[in-house]
Amino acid sequence: MFMLIFMPLFRTNWLLSRQALAECRKIDRQYVTEEELMRVNIWFAQIITDLGRSLQVRQVIVATAITYFKRFYTKNSFRNTEPNLVAATCMYLACKIEESPQHIKAVITDMKTIMQEKGEPFSYDNPKVAEMEFYLLEELNFNMIVYHPYRSLMTLAQDLGTKNEDVHWAWYVINDSYRTDMCLLYPPHVIAAAALYLQIALKGGAQYGDYSLTSMNTANNSSVAGVTTRGAKRGAAAAASNNNNNNNNINTSVNETPKVKDIRLWFAQLNVDLEQIIDIVQEIISLYKLWSEEDKQNEKIRDILNKLLK
């Protein structure tokens, strides 16, 4: 496949099956439920995202840091480690690897501010983070280069003739996917395809020369309808409503992008397992569901973290 050229170095396999991932989390699952663990993952992905925003680093660096964090916790249980220290260290290392090094003090200072706001002091100093970096390297098996779906997305979108707006929202969907386990389960180009699928197919695909595609996602309709999200929520919500109105506006924007291809044919030719794409789409939709409750759950996450870490 043409997009494979973006991951030629993807030699060491960090991808897990769902069973293997469940096995990795056995210890943590003794203390919290699957759903609570999902909330914990969302929580720490948010901390790393906040830290990245505060340090003003690029999105790819945030994605790399979250991937490190997730990989680290496939080999360790939350209970035996200090996730806030691990999170800060992941960001510190990701900045170096992505060629935008940040001073260790800047990372610590910003992390302190962020954790303060969350009512949780961050009391580690330079040597602690530097020591943790050593351990992190070992746990990562020194595989520090991480491939992300962003570049595949651009290639796919270009090939399909996707409208800019859709690429934009698909990009946000990819950002959001780092709050799920997708980067541990599927290769980047499949996640990119799924993000495009979520964005385009749920809109009905009419603009992309296909009128029968809606049948492919009837299975998702029930969950889509109830979705409210942040991040990509506007996109997904628009997609959901578009989907409902699909029969009415079928012809409105057909001519908007003349180069677009038949989307169903195109997805079929991608040589990507459609079941994987559906799995990713569903996972992201359940993320949006959980995430939308986040406002109410600040207390809840404390309870979960207490159960998990103490």
């Binding site: 290392l93 170096k96 595989n143």
Partner: peptide, 15 residues
């Protein structure tokens, strides 16, 4: 922590 150049060399050699 580890230097930028060690970081580069290890990460590339690893792949």
């Amino acid at each position: 922590g580890i230097s930028q150049s060690a970081c580069r060399e290890i990460s590339l050699c690893r792949e």
